[in-house]
Design a protein around this nucleic acid. Structure first.
Lengths: 168, 168
DNA sequence: CATTTAACTTCGTTTTTCAAAGCTAAATTC
DNA sequence: GAATTTAGCTTTGAAAAACGAAGTTAAATG
């Protein structure tokens, strides 16, 4: 996970620096399913101890998981989602949604997500307008802010101008 | 990107098989910013030609990008987002949103996303209830469907029972 | 027709990732 | 309280991936 030139200065790149390897998101998926212990993660994912150890340590360092001693066993540790970790929920839900839609399983549904308060299935992840209406990529135009990486900013502005000229 | 045992049978894992490496999401980010040509991707990302070539071919094979001859230059090819590719928009927006919130840049905003129809900034990505209200991870309980990987299903059901016993 | 350009391939090297085995300290069993 | 098991790492040699540089092909340019 070395930092490469040109891969910073954008929210996507910054997030991928934290969870953009092949294991972190699967570890976090399990964390969202209530997994907390080293051996429970390892049992689920067929991941080697060295990699799991490394990934957990990194996620802790990045503030996504919190490591605390297990209350019932002095050897064991619990890894729990922090507020920042919980805030990755839309990422996981949107990944799950895409997989369900574009890589469906002929055997049927994989995961049903139910709103606890009502017992109803949730609608899923969406990009929303200020008014709360769902938006597609075509409905949105990006604008470079002051902190955007310069080469990306140029790209974004070119794209924005092109969008302005085409049909809204 | 070898398929590992136990990393299938879940929407998240299926999606990560397509875009879960270090480059694909950055390539797609640029595609959403209007980049279409091999050399334009390469200029933006500091990626080697061999890896870029491989990733683009994979994304085409997976149905996320479409490769077509460039209309203005017989040598060149254009890589454009397919419907499936456009449908990854919530993934990218939620990644961007997390990066902006938890890895802010002191210099200010990076990317502003504007709804084209209204000119207003968008609200962003969210997980929604059936009624359209935003939900956090704590508001949702997962339920295993018939196609969920068996070991994950066990986990999910355990977690669901635990949730039922705790405060809603 | 010689040169440049777009988009790859190939190749040898460096970097990263991996699985398997070993380690340590706490808990459990006898 | 010695022996064994367990949780959670480290270490290590091997495998995989990514890298840059050079080579390839076919179209465009001059």
């Amino acid at each position: 996970m070395t930092v490469r030139p040109g891969l910073t200065g954008c929210g996507v790149a910054e997030t991928l620096k934290v969870i953009g390897d092949r294991w972190s998101l699967l570890i976090l998926r399990n964390a969202f399913h209530g997994v907390r212990r080293f051996d429970a993660f390892q049992e689920q994912l067929s991941i080697s101890t060295s990699v799991l150890s490394d990934r957990l340590a990194r996620l802790v360092r990045e503030g996504v998981l919190e490591r605390r001693p297990a209350p019932d066993d002095g050897r064991a540790a619990e890894y729990r989602l922090t507020e920042a970790g919980l805030d990755l929920y839309p990422v996981l839900i949107s990944l799950n949604q895409w997989g369900d839609r574009w890589r469906p399983d002929p055997a049927g549904e994989r995961l049903r997500l139910i709103e606890r308060a009502t017992g109803q299935p949730i609608r899923g992840a969406a990009v929303l307008s200020e008014a709360g209406a769902p938006l597609t990529a075509r409905d949105v135009a990006p604008e470079a802010g002051p902190a955007l990486a310069p080469d990306l900013a140029e790209l974004v502005e070119t794209h924005r101008k092109r969008l302005l000229k085409s049909a809204p």
